[in-house]
Amino acid sequence: MRRLAPHAAILVIALAGCRAQDATSAPPTPAAVAASAASGEIRVTRVAGGLEHPWAVLPLPDGRFLVTERPGRLRYVERDGKLSAPLAGVPEVWAQGQGGLLDVVAAPDFATSRRIWLSYAEPGPNGTAGTAVGYATLGSDRIDGFTRVYQQQPKLEGPNHFGSRIAFDREGHVFISQGERNDRPTAQKLDMLQGKLVRLNLDGSIPRDNPFVGRSDARPEIWSYGHRNMQSLAVDPRTGRVWEAEHGPRGGDEVNLPQPGKNYGWPIASHGLDYALPRAYPETQGTEVAGTEPPYHVWKKSPGLSGMAFYTGRPQSRWNDSLFIGALADRNLIRLTLEGDRIVSEERLLDDRRARIRDVRVGTDGAVYVLTDDDKDGELLRLDPPA
C-alpha cells in the first residue's frame, strides 16, 4: 500500500485512502474533507451523526435517507442531516448482543407502493431469538401495516450471528441472509434455517423451483447452506447474480456467489481458526472439503465484512465496476475492482477515520453512502468518487 501526501487547505484534511500505519491524522469534521486514494482524490462529507449503532441506510428518491439503529429505531435523515424522531410501527426487536433492528431496503415497486422491507432479531420464548423479515408502507412519521413474511426456525438462545441482509433478484424473489446463531453445526442441518441463504417469493410464499422443495428432511425456504454469519448481500445490476459475504471466525472472511442447493462449507471447511485456540474448530476438516464449495474470494485475516454495494453503469467514473464492502474489524471501506465477475484488485478507503464501517449503499446521484458503527456518534458519510 502506498503512503500518500497530505493536501493543505481550510477545512480540508489529509486522510489516507489506502492503509497507512501512522495514527496522527486529524479527526473527522462535519465539513467535507479531501481524501487521497490510489484511484485519485475523493471527497468525504459527514451527512449526519449522533446515531446509536446504526445498521443500515436506505437513500430515498427525495434526497432523504432511512437509517436503522440496532436498539430498534427507524429514523429519517433529512437533507440537512437532521434526525427525525423514531418512526412508529416498527416491530418489537430482541436488542441484545448483536441482535436488534438490522437491514432496511426499498421494495422493487417502492415508487408506487412506498413499501420497505426490514430484517431484525425477533424475540421468542424463554429468552430465545431468531432472524425475521417483513415489510410495511413508509409514511411521514410511521410505517403502516407491518407484515412479517419470514421467521428463522427454530429460535435459539444466544446473542450472536443474526446476519442479516435483504436483496431482490430480477425474477420476483427476495433473498434473506442470516447467521448460524454462533451454533456451528446448525449451518449443515437442512431441517434448521440457521446458517442458510433463503429465497422466497415477494408475498412470503416458497418458490416451486427452490432446490429443497419436496424433501421431507429439508426446509423448502433454503437456497444455499453452510454459511456462518452473512452480513453482506447484493445483486449485481449487470448480471442479476447474487453475491454474499460472511464473517469467518479468526480469519477466513469470504465472498461467495451462492448457487441453488450448494454447501458453502461452514464449519467443516474454513480458512479461519478457533477464537480460543491456535487451531481450527474441531468440526473443520480443512480449507477445502469434498462436497462443499470453496470461497469465491477469501481473506486470510478477517476484515469483519458488513454491508455490500455494487457501483456500476457509470463508465465516466473511476469507480465504475466496483464492489464496495464495509469492514468492521479493519475499520475501513473495501473497494474491489471487477472485470466481469473477476476481482482484479483491492483498495482500502477511509482508513484514517478508524471507524467500523457497518453499511454501504450507492445513491442515484453517483455518491457512495457509508454508515459507521458507534454507540453514541454513528455517522452517515457521503463519498464522492475521484473526478
Rank of each mutant, 00 (worst) to 15 (best):
P249D: 01
P249W: 02
P249T: 11
R250F: 06
G251T: 11
G252V: 01
G252I: 03
D253N: 05
D253C: 11
E254F: 05
E254M: 09
V255A: 10
N256A: 10
L257R: 12
L257F: 04
P258C: 08
P258R: 03
P258W: 03
Q259H: 05
P260H: 13
P260S: 14
P260E: 07
G261F: 11
G261S: 10
G261V: 13
N263G: 05
N263E: 06
N263S: 02
Y264N: 04
Y264G: 01
I268G: 04
I268W: 00
I268N: 01
A269Q: 06
A269L: 10
S270R: 07
S270C: 12
H271P: 03
H271L: 07
G272C: 08
G272K: 00
L273A: 02
L273T: 03
D274F: 05
Y275T: 13
L277Q: 12
P278N: 02
P278F: 13
Y281R: 14
P282I: 04
P282W: 05
E283G: 13
E283A: 04
E283W: 12
T284G: 03
T284Q: 07
Q285S: 09
Q285P: 06
T287C: 07
T287S: 09
T287K: 13
E288W: 02
A290P: 08
G291T: 10
T292D: 04
E293N: 00
E293V: 15
E293I: 13
P294L: 10
P295R: 03
P295I: 02
Y296P: 00
V298P: 00
V298F: 04
W299Q: 09
W299T: 05
W299E: 05
K300R: 14
K301R: 14
P303E: 14
P303G: 07
P303Q: 08
G304Y: 09
L305W: 01
L305H: 00
G307L: 12
G307F: 05
M308W: 06
A309L: 01
A309T: 09
Y311H: 08
Y311E: 12
T312I: 08
T312M: 03
R314M: 10
P315R: 04
Q316D: 15
Q316E: 15
Q316N: 11
S317R: 02
S317E: 06
R318Q: 07
R318D: 11
R318E: 09
R318S: 02
W319D: 07
N320C: 03
N320Y: 04
N320P: 06
N320V: 06
S322V: 04
L323C: 12
F324R: 00
I325T: 01
G326M: 00
A327C: 06
L328N: 04
D330A: 11
D330T: 07
D330P: 00
R331S: 08
N332R: 15
L333T: 14
R335T: 09
R335W: 02
L336S: 06
L336K: 08
L336Y: 13
T337M: 08
T337W: 07
T337K: 14
E339F: 06
E339D: 13
E339Y: 03
G340M: 06
I343P: 03
I343S: 04
V344H: 12
E346K: 14
E346Q: 12
E347G: 07
R348W: 14
L349E: 06
L349C: 01
L349G: 05
L350D: 05
L350R: 03
L350A: 12
D351Q: 14
D351L: 03
D352H: 11
D352R: 02
D352L: 01
R353N: 07
R354A: 10
R354S: 08
I357L: 13
R358G: 08
